[in-house]
Amino acid sequence: MRRSAIPVLTVVAVIFSLWYIACVPMNGQWTRDQAQRAGEELSFPTLVADTMSQDRPRLPAPHQVAVELWNSTVVEEATGRRGLWNTGSLSNRSLIYHGWVTLSATLLGFAFGTGMGILLAIGIVHNRAMDQSVMPWAIASQTIPILAIAPMIIVVFNAVGITGIIPKAIISAYLSFFPVVVGMVKGLRAPEVMQLDLMKTYSATRAEVFAKLRWPSSMPYLFASLKVGIAASIVGAIVGELPTGAVAGLGARLLSGSYYGQTIQIWSALFAAAILAASLVGLIGLIQRITLKRMGMAQ
């Protein structure tokens, strides 16, 4: 772990410096146009300084995104007119609020999708007919761009009067469902013939085989597919927010940012989504490490 700290930091530093350097050519045109219109002579240092402090740059500099992230979370809630401090509820202009909207849909959908996925996997492993008929479709469905139906689900549920978190959660559930099914089927089949035969010699019931052998052996697979599933769930929730007309959620922030050309807003929403995804994946990774360690399966 420590061995890769320096290389990782180096790579991250290189990415950030490339980002800063890219700001100059990306935003320079606008600065030069402004200067020409004003009839001013432009020195290189002023050009560089200006490219990193525009209101609507084509590529905001990292610090601009960071400042916007800070402003739209802590500052907005602490001092904003509609912030937590002044009103007692989250401000609809803060990324904490929008992040929570997305997060709640993600978590609800993820929990539902994972639960259904595990149940179906158990069914598939224990029932030959389900294995032969459902499993090929579960595998095939992973190659289909399921995300494309997101707008339809939202609108159809709107049409029958269901709005808010449920439709988004359904998309999230749908996206996390199939990775979990496929991963868990693999996991529940992970025990070797020898281990299964051993259980047979103990004349264990199928429930016992499941509880004492199949379920524990499937844990590494479960966590691997949970990580894939939660990442897919977030994408599902964000895309699910697009067709509702940019009301709330990180996806809505992305969309309204792109309507009004607020690049800094887009980037900060994007980073908020990235942070959210990273912390959820990281959280699952942590639970995985603790669980596998307690089960003596840690590498």
């Binding site: 061995r3 890769s4 320096i6 290389p7 990782v8 930091l9 180096t10 790579v11 991250v12 990415i15 084509r58 995300l147 990580k227 990442a231 977030i234 994408v235 964000i238 895309v239 990180l250 996806g251 992305l254 969309l255 940012g257 792109s258 050309g261 690049t263 887009i266 980037w267 929403a269 994007l270 989504a273 990235a274 995804a277 990273a278 994946v281």
Partner: peptide
């Protein structure tokens, strides 16, 4: 050693979100 962790980290992020930027 530097790129592998960063790469797998980025691969787990919701990159579709860059769409509005790319459209711009």
């Amino acid at each position: 050693r530097g790129l592998l962790p960063v790469g797998s980290f980025v691969a787990a992020l919701p990159i579709v979100g860059t769409a509005p930027i790319m459209v711009m």
